[in-house]
Design a protein around this nucleic acid. Sequence first.
DNA 1: GATGAATGAGGATTCATTCAT
DNA 2: CATGAATGAATCCTCATTCAT
Lengths: 206, 206, 206, 206
Amino acid sequence: MEDVLARMKAEKRIRVINSALKEFGANSFEKASTNTIVKDAGISKGLLYHYFESKDALYEYLLIFTMERMGNAILEGIDWEDGDLINRMHTAIRIKLEILEQYPYLMDFGKTMYDGKTMEEIKALVEQHIPDLYNKMYSYNIDYSLFKENLDVKRVITMIQLFLDGFSEKIASSYKNMTTTAELRKEFDELMIYLEMYKEAFYKKE
Amino acid sequence: MEDVLARMKAEKRIRVINSALKEFGANSFEKASTNTIVKDAGISKGLLYHYFESKDALYEYLLIFTMERMGNAILEGIDWEDGDLINRMHTAIRIKLEILEQYPYLMDFGKTMYDGKTMEEIKALVEQHIPDLYNKMYSYNIDYSLFKENLDVKRVITMIQLFLDGFSEKIASSYKNMTTTAELRKEFDELMIYLEMYKEAFYKKE
Amino acid sequence: MEDVLARMKAEKRIRVINSALKEFGANSFEKASTNTIVKDAGISKGLLYHYFESKDALYEYLLIFTMERMGNAILEGIDWEDGDLINRMHTAIRIKLEILEQYPYLMDFGKTMYDGKTMEEIKALVEQHIPDLYNKMYSYNIDYSLFKENLDVKRVITMIQLFLDGFSEKIASSYKNMTTTAELRKEFDELMIYLEMYKEAFYKKE
Amino acid sequence: MEDVLARMKAEKRIRVINSALKEFGANSFEKASTNTIVKDAGISKGLLYHYFESKDALYEYLLIFTMERMGNAILEGIDWEDGDLINRMHTAIRIKLEILEQYPYLMDFGKTMYDGKTMEEIKALVEQHIPDLYNKMYSYNIDYSLFKENLDVKRVITMIQLFLDGFSEKIASSYKNMTTTAELRKEFDELMIYLEMYKEAFYKKE
DNA sequence: GATGAATGAGGATTCATTCAT
DNA sequence: CATGAATGAATCCTCATTCAT
């Protein structure tokens, strides 16, 4: 990524990104106020528009920033030698949620990313960056022999994927209402149970 | 539902509702413009506020309107004597999608209903109307003996539910890009296959 | 006064008047809402405009209503045989405040009557009704021999009048913050002291 | 006073202030239109809100502006070595009226300042700025031996103060209808006579 | 690089008043 | 008498964006 903010001093850059993530995370794209962002980041109106052509461009920057963070973390966090797909999916979601935990604004922002509000051009960007990872996720070095014979594996994966999307959304929305890590761990254990059930249902018995 | 618009002539009422559904479906709550709605519905600014106290109130009206339409259709459409849960879920989603097909704006609007943007009080309303149906859906006259022994049925239902939510969202977003019923039927057949896979995985073999 | 509301049933008439006094008392003329008035009085928008040509006309009605109430009470309450002007002024202000106490909305309304916001035509009305009483107050059967010799009595009266205006405004604004009649009585005793001081300063020693 | 408008070019600043004083002086706070102000001042809607957070903030600014103008002029205009209280009051009112003459809108605005319409927080401001001056007015270096023995001096001062408030209001309202300085001088001479009468009544005979 | 003044269209909402029923 | 639906201009305020400094 050619970072438009590269020339900005790190400390200020982080301030700008955080302020923007916070504002976009808390509001819809249209309602999010560049006024609020610059005030919170302590920069001037003009400077924001010096770096970003428009509100759209700023949003796009955050989008890519977020996806790269997520993508790289997942790429580096997964044990690509382990051919167990369900394990891999579990790891991916764990990493995703870890990041969300660490960057709360990014979490809020992440949730808005998939809303219908997203501009068409930006949506294209998302689809351009995400699939590469998805492809590797589901193709690279997967041991499909773990699945039962005569199973429509592709559809099974879709099943699990849609389930995981829904479940992680549930967890994400939990972040707002719970503080104790104990409660969070419980949600994770719950997820673990589900994944074991998927294994039970679709993996061969050893 | 005590219908605020009851006194309005049917033809005009429908125009107002449709215009509002269209606008709220196409935009976030905040960005949705009452100006656009009244212009599209051919009424005056004041009249809208004669019937609805505020933009919020209008949105709430649409929310309840939508939920009742959906809820009643499902309540009446389901064969409550059939104890097969997966069949029941399938029927429910078919009805839901039928309505969405008939009221395209209602479909778009329906998608925004569950967004984080929804005001707290309105969210309460949703939760007040929806669970009653959900309860009946999953409790009334279900033949749990269809499921395999020693199965965590509750979690299995959650699995399917989250999958269905994701899948119907996928279909809903398809409506925008496809016109041919042939394509739609294909999506439905696809859904059918998934549900059969769930049966295969979690129901006893006869 | 030809009462526009004469044909209205007494009970409803009072409700309308009170609601209007309340609203105009609480808000500036422009901000006062006829919507609020009709809602509070339990009548329809159309009915208000059946009786009153406009918001202005309603205000004018209240204005005259208030002035006549006040005027008549003072006319009847004063002992016109007592030639002591300061006594007379004291009685007048006591009556005025008694009425204000009895009709709290009328009190609030009365305060707005003299604001700069009053429309020019309405102001004329006030000046048309009030002076007659004022004339009688200061002319009829006054024993000017009570004043010291060589005193510019006319200017003394102006002195006292301006003082009383200011003081009664002070008391009126007190009504809002105090409930105990004890406190009110104290304000009155205070007024009494001032009037005695005026007598001391400007009346002959007996 | 931290002047929000400090950065604005003087010529434009004065235009804005005058337009605002005019509008607020002519209308109640609520009815006063920011639209009218910006149109009259020749600036854009947005610019007004760039400098002032809200209509309230603009009003507050004018309030403080007015009070400081008045306060400073009085502080500097009074001969604090002269212990004659009535002289001092006379000087104060003369200064006040001089300013009002110079800033006619400020005069109109001044009248609205004490209306019940004033927001509570703003009222607090008034009470915060005014009393300091009042204290000095009536306490600093006053020669109370000028007053007759055995006189309730405190109440006498209140008498005069209330009278002066009423009288200056009368003069102020005259400004609107008269142009000739001759007439104004006559009003002043009149005031002079009253103050002499107060001296006659409450000061010792030399 | 950096500032913040300036724009003006657009946002939701309120209002007095009219008029067909 | 009485209703309340209907109007549309006016209200304050916000916004993304531009540009001279």
